[in-house]
Amino acid sequence: IAAVTSDIGIQAAKTGMLASSEIITTIAETWRTEGLAGTVPLVVDPVCASMHGDPLLHPSALDALRTELFPLATLVTPNLDEVRLLVGVEVVDTASQRDAARALHALGPRWALVKGGHLRSSSASPDVLFDGTEFHEFAAPRVDTGDDHGAGDTLAAATACALAHGYSVPQAVEFGKAWVTECIRAAYPLGHGHGPVNALFRLSV
Rank of each mutant, 00 (worst) to 15 (best):
A95E: 15
A95Q: 14
A95F: 08
A95S: 11
A95H: 09
Q97I: 01
R98T: 07
R98E: 15
R98A: 07
D99S: 15
A100M: 05
A100T: 04
A101F: 11
A101S: 09
A101W: 13
R102N: 10
A103Q: 11
A103T: 04
L104C: 04
L104Y: 08
H105I: 06
H105G: 04
H105P: 03
H105M: 08
H105N: 11
A106M: 08
A106P: 04
A106D: 14
A106T: 10
A106Y: 08
L107S: 09
L107G: 07
G108H: 12
G108E: 12
G108F: 12
G108L: 13
P109F: 11
P109H: 12
R110Y: 06
R110P: 04
R110C: 08
R110L: 15
W111E: 10
W111D: 06
W111C: 08
A112Y: 12
A112F: 13
L113F: 09
V114R: 05
V114S: 05
V114Q: 09
V114I: 14
G116A: 06
G116Y: 04
H118N: 02
H118Y: 03
H118E: 06
H118L: 02
H118F: 02
H118I: 01
L119D: 04
L119M: 06
R120W: 01
R120K: 09
R120Y: 01
S121H: 00
S121M: 01
S122Y: 03
S123G: 04
S123H: 05
S123N: 06
S123C: 00
S123I: 00
S123D: 14
S123M: 01
A124W: 00
A124L: 10
A124D: 15
A124Q: 14
S125L: 07
S125A: 15
S125C: 14
S125R: 00
P126S: 03
P126Q: 02
P126R: 02
